[in-house]
Amino acid sequence: MTQHSDATLATERVLLASPRQVFTAFSQPQLLARWWGPEGFSNTFEQFDFRPGGRWVFVMHGPDGANYPNGSRFRRIEEDTLVVIDHVVAPLFTLTVRLTPHGEHHTHLAWAQAFESAALADKLRALVVPANEQNLDRLQTVLSTLGAA
């Protein structure tokens, strides 16, 4: 999938947690299931193989009772610094999450979701941008339960 800036929806956040803690919130399925998705959503993980090439198959359950099957493959993982995920069911996209230390006990998180076209990114922008912000709000809430950085 070619990454063009007009096909990418991105957000950044400084989180009150170490890069190790943020990475743990991605790598541990029991933590990831608690925060993945917009406000009001929950998850049932069917397969979670956190390694390059590993599959992640799950269902997101919406607050209205609707179920959203998801399938992803972990493309690249660098401990405490990078997670790249290919979403392999529609809509197709690659999510790149970069973690950088930011002062003491903080992490700068850069979240870039590259869709297969600018048209698709434009079509999904109104849904994806606020959903990603809610996702990161939920991540910060989970991180606050992990204790000292």
Results as ranks from 00 to 15, higher is better:
Thr2Asn: 07
Thr2Ile: 03
Gln3Gly: 09
Gln3Pro: 00
Gln3Ala: 15
His4Glu: 14
Ala7Met: 05
Thr8Glu: 08
Ala10Met: 04
Ala10Trp: 07
Val14Thr: 13
Leu15Glu: 05
Arg20Ala: 15
Ala25Asp: 01
Ala25Ser: 11
Ala25Tyr: 05
Ala25Cys: 05
Phe26Thr: 10
Ser27Phe: 01
Pro29Tyr: 01
Leu31Ser: 13
Leu31Asp: 10
Ala33Trp: 08
Trp35Tyr: 09
Trp35Gly: 00
Gly37Thr: 06
Pro38Glu: 05
Glu39Asp: 08
Glu39Tyr: 02
Gly40Lys: 01
Phe41Gln: 14
Asn43His: 07
Asn43Glu: 11
Thr44Cys: 02
Thr44Pro: 01
Phe45Asn: 09
Phe45Tyr: 15
Gln47Tyr: 00
Phe48Ala: 11
Asp49Glu: 14
Phe50Glu: 13
Arg51Leu: 01
Pro52Tyr: 06
Met60His: 08
His61Thr: 14
His61Ser: 11
His61Val: 00
Pro63Lys: 06
Pro63Tyr: 01
Pro63Val: 06
Pro63Glu: 08
Pro63Gln: 12
Asp64Glu: 04
Gly65Ile: 03
Gly65Trp: 10
Asn67Glu: 15
Asn67Gly: 07
Tyr68Arg: 11
Pro69Val: 13
Ser72Lys: 05
Ser72Met: 15
Arg73Lys: 14
Arg75Asn: 11
Ile77Ala: 02
Ile77Thr: 02
Glu78Ser: 10
Glu79Arg: 13
Asp80Arg: 01
Leu82Cys: 06
Val83Leu: 15
Val83Trp: 09
Val83His: 06
Val84Thr: 13
Val84Leu: 13
Asp86Leu: 04
Asp86Ile: 03
His87Thr: 10
Val88Glu: 15
Val89Thr: 14
Ala90His: 12
Pro91Trp: 12
Pro91Ile: 03
Phe93Pro: 00
Phe93Met: 12
Thr94Ser: 11
Thr94Ile: 02
Thr96Cys: 10
Val97Thr: 12
Arg98Gln: 13
Arg98Leu: 10
Leu99Gly: 06
Thr100Gln: 13
Thr100Trp: 08
Pro101Asp: 00
Pro101Phe: 08
His102Arg: 09
Gly103Leu: 10
His105Lys: 09
His106Lys: 15
His108Asn: 04
His108Trp: 14
Ala110Cys: 07
Ala110Met: 11
Ala114Gly: 12
Ala114Trp: 08
Ala114Asp: 04
Phe115Ile: 00
Ser117Arg: 01
Ala118Thr: 06
Ala118Val: 08
Ala119His: 14
Ala119Tyr: 12
Leu120Gln: 08
Asp122Lys: 13
Asp122Pro: 03
Lys123Phe: 12
Lys123His: 15
Leu124Lys: 07
Arg125Leu: 13
Arg125Lys: 15
Leu127Phe: 11
Val128His: 03
Val128Phe: 07
Val129Asp: 00
Val129Trp: 03
Pro130Ser: 07
Pro130Val: 12
Ala131Cys: 05
Leu136Asn: 00
Asp137Cys: 01
Leu139Trp: 07
Gln140Arg: 01
Val142Met: 05
Leu143Ser: 02
Leu143Lys: 05
Ser144Met: 11
Thr145Trp: 09
Leu146His: 04
Leu146Thr: 04
Leu146Glu: 02
Ala148Ser: 09
Ala148Gly: 10
Ala148Asp: 10
Ala148Asn: 06
Ala149Gly: 14
Ala149Trp: 01
